[in-house]
């Protein structure tokens, strides 16, 4: 569909959609509010108003997070910039043990963006939030001239409530604990590389973009003493584990043969000289749990649709003489240290 009643018939965003006049009003009313199931009546105020009582009943701390999304291409197998934003913000809340409540979404739209594309993105965001049981309650739209932004940028913020009995922290990993992931590494990073099309690799890899609230609840029910949780986005599992080792002042040893990686992702990595351990994920988390709860945690993850390929990938030990580290032990008995990736991963020449 190329024209949306009331928004204009050109089928594209124009500067008028950000001008504060009727075109902007129509865009907000018919595209955003409709998708996010808010009525123009409730959206007349300049702010969302959340009743305190249910929040207080749910826990003793408010979790609050924000994130901006600038991915290219805007749509890719397994998701789009909108689902990325919703999932990313929800996941940043749930890895703190929070139950997400509400999100905001602020859009920067480029003049010339196809309305049909915007509508698909917004619809997908609404679906994703609904599935996760979270409402998108406030937002903003700006339009910038063509060329000033790459189609569409979105910033989402989220609030959630942390139940009183949860104390999940990146500083809480202890020697003797084990490290789990809920599935295959690097799917999102590889999907984006392939979706950009300039590699001419004919391989179907879908992003793993997914909200992890349900999975985290299942995990915490089975392993109530879970120490640390992190969603492994930019920098991949390696980046997250480097931070975790540093923050908890421990050393981590990973078993390379236990790392779950799709063969097609491994293939893309081999061709480009990259490693799945460093590629971004959007539906994967790293969990550190006490050894005693490892089995229950793994079983709970595997019983959830987003954790069927969950694996125990490593163990936590005291930091060595040179301080915290992440070491990968491979099938040959060789060891290598994994360091925080520096800058973006660049493909090798040959």
């Amino acid at each position: 569909m190329n024209s949306i009643p009331g928004i204009g018939t050109g089928g594209r965003i124009t500067m008028a959609h950000g001008g504060g006049g009727t075109a902007m009003r129509a865009l907000i009313d018919t595209l955003f509010l409709e998708a996010f199931s808010a009525t123009p009546h409730t959206a007349q105020e300049d702010q969302a108003r959340l009743p305190l009582a249910p929040l207080v009943a749910g826990g003793d701390r408010l979790a609050f997070t924000t994130d901006s999304f600038v991915v290219e291409p805007l749509e890719f197998p397994g998701g789009n910039i909108g689902t990325l934003a919703v999932c990313g913000t929800i996941n940043d809340l749930v890895v703190g043990g929070a139950r997400p409540v509400a999100l905001s979404a602020a859009f920067i739209l480029a003049e010339g963006l196809e309305l049909a594309c915007l509508r698909r993105i917004v619809a997908a965001m609404a679906d994703c939030a609904r599935e996760a049981g979270v409402r998108i309650v406030t937002g903003d739209t700006k339009v910038v001239p063509k060329g000033a932004c790459d189609g569409l940028y979105v910033t989402t913020s989220g609030v959630g409530v942390i139940p009183a009995d949860r104390a999940i922290s990146i500083t809480a990993a202890r020697p003797g604990d084990v490290v789990l992931v809920n599935g295959t590494l690097g799917d999102h990073g590889a999907a984006i590389l392939c979706a950009r099309g300039d590699l001419a690799l004919d391989v179907a890899i879908a992003s793993d973009c997914a909200p992890l609230g349900g999975l985290v609840e299942a995990l915490l029910a089975a392993a109530p003493n879970t120490r640390s949780l992190r969603d492994a986005t930019r920098g991949g599992v390696a980046g997250v584990l480097s931070e975790l080792a540093e923050a908890s002042a421990v050393s981590l040893t990973l078993d390379e043969t236990a790392l779950p990686v799709r063969p097609e992702v491994e293939g893309v990595c081999d061709i480009l000289g990259l490693e799945a351990l460093f590629l971004a994920n959007e539906g994967k988390l790293v969990a550190v749990v006490p050894q005693a709860e490892a089995e229950a945690a793994l079983a709970a993850l595997r019983a959830h649709p987003l954790g069927q390929q969950a694996a125990l990938i490593g163990t936590v030990a005291e930091a060595g003489p040179h301080g915290p580290s992440v070491v990968v032990r491979n099938a040959f008995g060789g060891r290598r240290t994994v360091t925080m990736p520096s800058g973006e991963q660049l493909p090798r020449i040959c």
């Binding site: 060595g320 040179h322 301080g323 580290s325 290598r336 240290t337 994994v338 360091t339």
Partner: peptide, 8 residues
């Protein structure tokens, strides 16, 4: 060497 043998 830096990446894989690291700070040690």
């Amino acid at each position: 060497c830096y990446d894989y043998e690291g700070a040690r």
